[in-house]
């Protein structure tokens, strides 16, 4: 089994949730967000760069996250994103929705348990 095979395709809308969740731990730049998701999911989830930046800008446009230019830990200028207040509310909302969905899915998939 090659490493690519246990990767899970991202469902529509889940990318937003992942980004918001990652930013709970504090402001972060795009590359760090992608790295974090990959790392935490043990390589199961890999965010395509081609989708990440458009998603970040979309969330910023909606006001769920805000961006500012800061020096990274290595001293380079990077665009850091942080959660806004609306973003936090949205995260809570979307997370609970997601959990409901997950529970429901589990019930359907394993009715005997």
């Amino acid at each position: 089994m090659s490493p690519a095979d246990h990767r899970v395709d991202l469902l529509y809308g889940t990318l937003d949730l992942l980004i918001l969740r990652t930013l709970v731990y504090g402001p972060s730049h795009g590359h760090a967000i992608a790295r974090y998701v990959r790392h935490v999911s043990e390589d199961a989830l890999r965010i395509e760069t081609g989708s990440l930046y458009p998603a970040l800008h979309k969330l910023e446009g909606r006001g769920w996250i805000a961006a500012e230019w800061k020096k990274s830990d290595k001293g380079k200028r990077a665009r850091y994103y942080r959660l806004t207040l609306t973003g936090r509310k949205q995260l809570a909302l979307q997370q609970s929705r997601w959990e409901q969905l997950a529970v429901a899915m589990a019930r359907v998939l394993r009715p005997a348990d």
Binding site: H29, G30, H31, A32, R35, T49, Y53, H57, W69, S72, K74, K76, R77, A78, R79
Partner: peptide
């Protein structure tokens, strides 16, 4: 311009990694 810089930064990080 900002987006370009953001992309450059990403590439630099990735390269370093």
């Amino acid at each position: 311009a900002e987006l370009d810089e953001e992309i450059r930064f990403h590439l630099a990080e990735e390269t370093e990694e």
